[in-house]
Amino acid sequence: MDEPLLSIRDLCVDYVSEAGCVRAVDHVTLDVSRAEIVGVAGESGSGKSTLAQALLRILPPPAIISGGEARFEGRDILTLSETELRELRWRRISMVFQSAMDSLNPVISIGEQIVDTLVAHGAATRQEARSRAAELLEMVGIPAPRVDAYAHQLSGGMRQRVGIALALALEPALVILDEPTTALDVIVEREILQQIRGLQEKLGFAVLFITHDLARMLQFSDRVAVFYAAQLVELAPAAELRRAPRHPYTEGLLRAFPSVQSDADEPESIPGAPPSLLSPPAACRFHPRCDRVQAICRERQPDLIQLGPRRAAACHLAE
């Protein structure tokens, strides 16, 4: 098999605060192949968005990447210089931000914001860039004349479409979607995801899709990575994960979503609350909430065990 497009090895990200050091991403290892859609699921605060920002090296100041490697097209992103990073950003890896409301500059027209990107990367002159911006907007279903519109003149769904058009402007190899539809209603959410899927099939970029909505993710992704308390706990192709989860946390997550197909069970929530990362539970971090906890779970932290060519889980019971 070829080398994967993105290969993350033992990545660690720490938030340094007065209360102590919080590890928001703890030894995460994950591959993304070309044109693959990898979903990253987990509760709030499980480190998903931090992972995304670490990949573009745009983490806000108190956060530092404290270890590991993230090889992208053969180069380690974490060791790139500021100039190399600028070339990588958007041209090779782009991102759709979580909040469509706040990620567009309110005082510059949406067209200008796309033009800025194209011009900064030398992809076009200002004149060319303008018509290219209009094309990009049309591609995501926004009429070309709206190129001069400002963010406040657009609906939430349209703003997120602008975010997508912007992310695809330079035809990157990897697009990170950081909870792209959290602020939107279900109908708009589905439209947008379908649109991304369609564009992905056409343009062939890989996607790292971050969300807390596991059901949505299972429909949308090829492979799913489940995060719990800053760690990767299970990795599996979407269909297999749905059919036979190997980590009790994944099982709990699946049970927590109502199923449209079967009218059998009421959704069930996982007891307890996600642990504080300031003082995570010893050994297996999920053991205080696990319904099948064993003695070993309290003693030793489970490793991420390879369970098949494309499957892995970090649970003593999966061995």
């Binding site: 806000p60 500059n105 800025d116 990107t117």
Partner: peptide, 18 residues
Amino acid sequence: LGSDYVNLARAKGLTPSR
């Protein structure tokens, strides 16, 4: 500087001065 759109501008690969 801490807002999302500035972070996005940074992620877009614009020069720091821009």
